[in-house]
Design a protein around this nucleic acid. Structure first.
Length: 474
RNA sequence: GGCCCCAUCGUCUAGUGGCUAGGACAUCAGGUUCUCAUCCUGAGAACGCGAGUUCGAUUCUCGCUGGGGUCACCA
């Protein structure tokens, strides 16, 4: 049987970073086995649906490279399945459940239900529907439809991650399947769709583990074969509890807006709960598809660590193709009011070795973007050196650089020539290179003088050295 | 509180009935380098507790403790 997974988010707010990870695991599992991956928008709660969030979710999946390969036609491409467009279907299947005696209409008021739960809590019992309408044959008008949970059963199943899990049916509530507004609840719509779409593996967060018996009972009531379930460990905040909006860092979009490369985000997320076993940790999406193994996913929750994300982000940044980075970084530069220069790819070659995110580009190499440097003359003097020596070296360097041709103006050549020249005249690396670098970058800490000179070009380099000499003279 | 799930360095994790319990991030200390970053070397750092099984448990079983999830006409 062809393996098929789905990602089924609700458009009720920003996509949670844990949701992105769920999508990733579903995607990796399907792709690893040559199966299919689909996306289904679960927007059956009209009150909580937030306009625009469906678009955000899809945009993030696209940016992350998690493509889906089936769905209704939208402008000649696959779109996601959308549950609010399929309500008739759920109603039809709900009726079948009524006909077969697996579900019943319930007209209990919200007030009665609240009072009932309050009393149950007082007796420290689990709040649970008392079955008041089970045999009342309520009219469907304005009623909700409930699933009739059989008594005294043990619902056992084998979770692909957790192994054998079981629940007593007596602890399971008579779940509402159809709300009084006619919309299905998650439980009904989810099961109907997973069956109709022939989903073979349901990979979702652990928060769904305790409602799995309801789902299994629904499959049974319909007479359908349930898929394999796999419940992922939760992402924890480090301060107790799962990562939430309150604990910060929860919205996936934030990471993209901060300029983390998508492959870094994905790589980080997959490591939260899964490890290929070897000592390697840096993987591209393509490599992840090859090595991913659902059975090796951890059972315990994982704390989200920004330190590790930053490290991975830097690793991926170092490996990234500068030409690709050019496109990605442009919006970030513009946001900072920096105009992307023609030699942006060269700048990125230097910058990518030093930063973790796209939003940092332009900080280390700011000297290329600005016309005026702002620094104190004293900064030009290296440790264990003095003003006169700095001036002397700057002057000699300027003369030497002036004689170099444009053709020789590359990082490697400049480094070779300058180093040889310094050695030949015993000028001292520190005494010569420090003032040169500060003259070009204006910073105490910065990329090296050879990279800086190469990025600035001959003319601007000579100008800045001249400017530095002037600063030391006045 | 009921039910369910989980438990190896600070964090992410590997691992086995007998190992100096391995790696990565972070931290600290050196080295390379004009600075910073990179890179290299090194250091400290973990099997929650108690029984049982066993010649021997971090590993298997049970209990405890701890953490988490869930108990809606939300997903």
């Amino acid at each position: 049987m062809k393996i098929k997974t789905r990602f089924a988010p609700s458009p009720t707010g920003h996509l949670h970073i844990g949701g992105l990870r769920t999508a990733l695991f579903n995607f990796l599992f399907a792709r690893h086995h040559g199966g299919a991956f689909i996306v289904r928008i679960e927007d059956t709660d009209r009150a909580r649906t937030v306009p625009g969030t469906q678009e955000e979710i899809l945009a993030i999946l696209k940016r992350a490279g998690l493509t889906y390969d089936e769905g209704p036609d939208v402008d000649g491409k696959y779109g996601p399945y959308v549950q609010s467009e399929r309500t008739e279907l759920y109603r039809k299947y709900a009726e079948k459940l009524v006909a077969s005696g697996h579900a019943y209409w319930c007209l209990c008021s919200v007030e009665r239900l609240e009072k009932m739960r309050e009393e149950q809590k007082k007796r420290s019992e689990m709040p649970k529907y008392d079955g008041h309408c089970r045999d009342a044959h309520c009219s469907p008008e304005g009623a909700v439809l409930r699933l009739k949970i059989p008594a005294g059963r043990t619902i056992a199943f084998n979770d692909a991650i957790r192994g054998d899990v079981s629940f007593a049916s007596n602890d399971v509530d008579d779940q509402v399947l159809l709300k009084s507004d006619g919309f299905p609840t998650y439980h009904l719509a989810n099961i109907v769709d997973d069956h109709l779409m022939e989903i073979t593996h349901v990979i979702r967060g652990e928060e769904w583990l305790s409602s799995t018996p309801k789902h299994l009972l629904l499959y049974e009531a319909f007479g359908w074969k349930p898929p394999t379930f796999a419940h992922l460990p939760l992402i924890l905040s480090g301060e107790g509890g799962k990562l939430s909006k309150r604990s910060g860092h929860a919205a996936a979009i934030d990471y993209f807006e901060q300029g983390y490369l998508s492959e870094a985000i994905l790589n980080f997320l997959v490591l939260l709960g899964w490890n290929p076993g070897g000592e390697r940790e840096v993987y591209s999406l393509k490599e992840l598809i090859e090595v991913f193994d659902l059975a090796k996913v951890n059972k315990s929750g994982a704390v989200f660590s920004l330190d590790k994300l930053d490290w991975l982000a830097h690793e991926h940044m170092k490996q990234a193709d500068p030409k690709r980075l050019v496109k990605l970084v442009e919006p970030f530069l513009k946001k900072k009011g920096l105009e992307p220069p023609r030699n942006l790819a060269d700048i990125l070659r230097v910058e990518q070795q030093r930063v973790a995110t796209l939003s940092e580009v332009g900080e280390e190499t700011q000297f290329v973007f600005v016309d005026e440097l702002n620094y104190k003359p004293a900064l030009l003097v290296a440790k264990k050196s003095n003003t006169e020596e700095a001036k002397d070296r700057l002057g000699k360097t300027q003369a030497f650089l002036t004689k170099l041709s444009e053709k020789e103006w590359g990082t490697a050549t400049l480094e070779k020539k300058l180093l040889a020249w310094i050695k030949e005249h015993t000028l001292g690396n520190s005494q010569t290179l420090w003032p040169l670098r500060v003259a070009l970058t204006g910073r105490e800490k910065s990329p090296g003088p050879f990279e800086a000179a190469a990025l600035l070009g001959k003319e601007r380099t000579i100008e800045r050295v001249e400017d530095a000499i002037q600063r030391l003279s006045s």
